[in-house]
């Protein structure tokens, strides 16, 4: 009984950690990006200051909007925070794994995205509609790539339960397998999908307010105050979840393969933080190196992700 309680406590701690530190991760990525562009950049805590400032501000809601506009940020925040419950972060274990697997997590992301797209259309401003149609195009193309990737991952690691596949990945590493070829192709596909889902640069520029290029920013252009804070926060949580998932599935080095002892737990916490930091720096470097792609070239990149995961499936069956 007490063991179950400990496990639940660990799970809740993991979830709270990812929700609380997600803006910090965003801040670190912005800082790295700024430094690589020879700018000084804002403090890594800037996302927190932004959130606090937005929370204090008054909110302006268009009188043309319906309840969807007001509900969407809440739905988004709750859906992403719930998705954080299912993701094993420091340990290959999440106590709520029985309640939801990787498909539920993606479904929650889909729910959040659906509501924010509705909200973008709801106010009937030109920008909202523009951003929504672009987002719909990208998400419709991301979906097949994402599901093929998940298919490869679950075939290779056995199942869609996040706890068990992360544990299987860590177990493989412990038994001396650096990377399975099918997972190598899934890694490439998942990296592209991760950039698309979290709205990073070849797909969307999170820092832009230029009407020709913005996707996500255009959708949430009408939001202000507390709602905007919620949207930004859930965006950073989503990104942190995707980074954590990438690290835990594909780079299992240092992760404990089972929940034993405090020393292995410490190793996996430290190695997890190091890996996520390195990965986010890599993403920031890529953002500095590449320009945002033209909208109609994005399907090329996603086709590459699809092809890569197709070959992953092929390699699995060999």
């Amino acid at each position: 009984m007490s063991e179950t309680l400990t496990l639940v406590a660990i799970g809740i701690f993991q979830t709270i950690a990812i929700i609380a530190f997600a803006p910090l991760l965003m801040g670190i990525m912005r800082k790295v990006k700024a430094r690589t562009q020879k700018r000084l950049g804002a403090s890594v805590l800037q996302p927190y200051y932004d959130l606090l400032k937005l929370l204090k501000k008054d909110e302006v809601v268009s009188d043309q909007s319906s309840w969807i506009f007001r509900a969407a940020p809440w739905v988004m925040l709750v859906a992403t925070a719930t998705a954080a419950l299912f993701v094993p972060i420091f340990l290959p274990f999440s106590p709520f794994g029985t309640a939801g697997d990787i498909l539920v997590m993606l479904g929650l992301f889909g729910l959040a995205r659906f509501f924010i797209m509705l909200a973008g259309l709801d106010v009937a401003s030109a920008f909202g509609g523009l951003g929504t149609s672009r987002e719909m195009m990208i998400s419709a193309l991301v979906e097949p790539a994402l599901f093929l990737t998940i298919f490869v991952v679950s075939l290779t690691l056995g199942g869609t339960n996040l706890s068990s596949i992360v544990a299987a990945s860590a177990g493989q590493f412990v038994s001396g397998v650096l990377i399975v070829p099918s997972m190598l192709f899934a890694l490439i596909a998942f990296f592209v999908v991760m950039l698309a889902e979290s709205g990073r640069i070849p797909f969307d520029n999170p820092a832009t307010h230029l009407e020709l290029t913005m996707v996500h920013e255009a959708m949430v252009l009408e939001y202000s105050g507390k709602s905007l804070a919620m949207i930004q926060w859930s965006q950073s949580i989503k990104q942190a979840i995707l980074l954590a998932l990438f690290v835990n599935l594909f780079i299992p080095a240092g992760m404990a393969s089972s929940i034993v002892g405090i020393d292995t737990a410490a190793t996996s916490v430290v190695s997890f933080i190091a890996k996520v930091l390195l990965l986010s720096m890599l993403v920031a470097f890529i953002e500095t190196r590449t320009a945002k792609w033209r909208l109609f070239r994005l399907p090329d990149l996603l086709a590459m992700a699809i092809a890569s995961s197709m070959i992953g499936v092929l390699f699995f069956y060999l």
């Binding site: 290779t156 690691l157 056995g158 299987a168 177990g171 493989q172 038994s175 001396g176 397998v177 650096l178 990377i179 399975v180 070829p181 190598l184 192709f185 390699f315 060999l318």
Partner: peptide, 17 residues
């Protein structure tokens, strides 16, 4: 986990990948 996957690091497969 399939025992086949837990085989030795397969350098042949990796290089073909």
């Amino acid at each position: 986990v399939d025992s086949m996957i837990l085989a030795q690091p397969d350098i042949l497969m990796l290089s073909s990948a």
